[in-house]
Design a protein around this nucleic acid. Structure first.
Lengths: 188, 188
DNA sequence: TAGTATACCTACTTACTGGTAGGTAATCAA
DNA sequence: TTGATTACCTACCAGTAAGTAGGTATACTA
């Protein structure tokens, strides 16, 4: 079970494709070509595409949660924590990708329903984490907003997801940079 | 050239499919089945899928611009105008669809590049219109925000697009309703 | 050393994709 | 009334999708 196992390489390739071309915009043949292996070998690790997609989302969620923990642990101050959060999306954009969760949400009507609960949990995890940060920031006098932290957290996440879509389509990272600053300014 | 011409019915069907299953998530066969005609008849009206997609986006843009004009003409007050704008997205959501522009943006990596300029124009039209409304609202003392109207317009649109994705995936119209109110409250 | 599991492979199937060739019935203009 | 145009049709094509059957080499295990 080495680090760059074929299984992981398949997931990496599938994720890159899913984040650029859509959840139904790539095939086993695409991955096989990129990795220099055969389609059947991918079916060995992920018998059906549903299996691959399930694992893709699960891995993405786990990775995201671990990033959130790192931010809480290593970054001081709610404003800087929100900045770091938004920074993750900016990094995704600079790789010409959008969020896997956002991509999946856009394709939810064409996806097996078994994936939906995990996707919903993904969004809830994000919103809950953001709401916690915002609550703490307000109590500490760093942030200033009216209404619930939950609703501002939803708006913050929605704007990042939508901004990622727009900036990626417009091929304009500046759009996203300004959006990011506007969102954080509004909370102060 | 009657109102419900086959050509229009094809576009209607394609649009519904594109807004629910993705821009690459439907086929000529799907449309043919829904309309009770043959695939070849669709090719008669739209020789290639690129032709269909181009027309789809063009029609959507035109329709949207005409809605914006109606709002400016018939609705008084920037706050109410923004409410009506957001209302259009809520209607889309209640049809279990997302914005065609947002869907297209999410699939931009898998779409012919010929479509991109029109998509970029779509977003710019929206942002410019919103920025105009916001500028007027600020001058009239109805709205209150710091920073440029352009950046708040971008944030507003991005949040609606992202919120549509999330609320649709979560099958929760309440999420979108609260988001909408939060966005407008923040501008006051 | 014999048996089993792992991780790949070639070669295939079925179903669906966008697209084309060519035919037909109805309408319309000269 | 002839000839063109419109709006459909049947029947097909090559390519690609996900998925399967069955083979092979290597490693681990009893």
């Amino acid at each position: 079970m080495e680090i760059n196992s074929t299984r992981d390489l398949i997931l990496d390739s599938a994720q890159a494709l899913a984040q650029t071309r859509g959840f139904n915009g790539y095939s086993y043949a695409d991955i096989a070509l990129e990795l220099g292996i055969r389609k059947a070998s991918i079916h060995y690790h992920f018998p059906s595409k549903n299996d691959l997609e399930t694992e893709l989302l699960s891995r993405y969620r786990t990775g995201f949660v671990s990033e959130l923990q790192k931010i809480e642990l290593n970054v001081n101050g709610s404003i800087e924590q929100l900045q770091r959060y938004a920074q993750m999306y900016a990094t995704t954009l600079s790789n010409n990708r959008i969020c896997l969760g956002g991509m999946m949400a856009s394709d939810v009507g064409a996806l097996p329903e078994t994936l939906t609960p995990s996707l919903v949990s993904f969004f809830k995890e994000q919103v809950d984490w953001l709401a916690n940060i915002m609550d703490a920031g307000k109590k500490a006098g760093e942030l200033n907003f009216s209404g619930s932290a939950q609703s501002h957290a939803t708006a913050f996440l929605a704007a990042l997801q939508g901004g990622l879509l727009m900036a990626n389509a417009m091929e304009d990272e500046g759009v996203f940079k300004r959006l990011r600053q506007t969102l954080i300014n509004t909370l102060q």
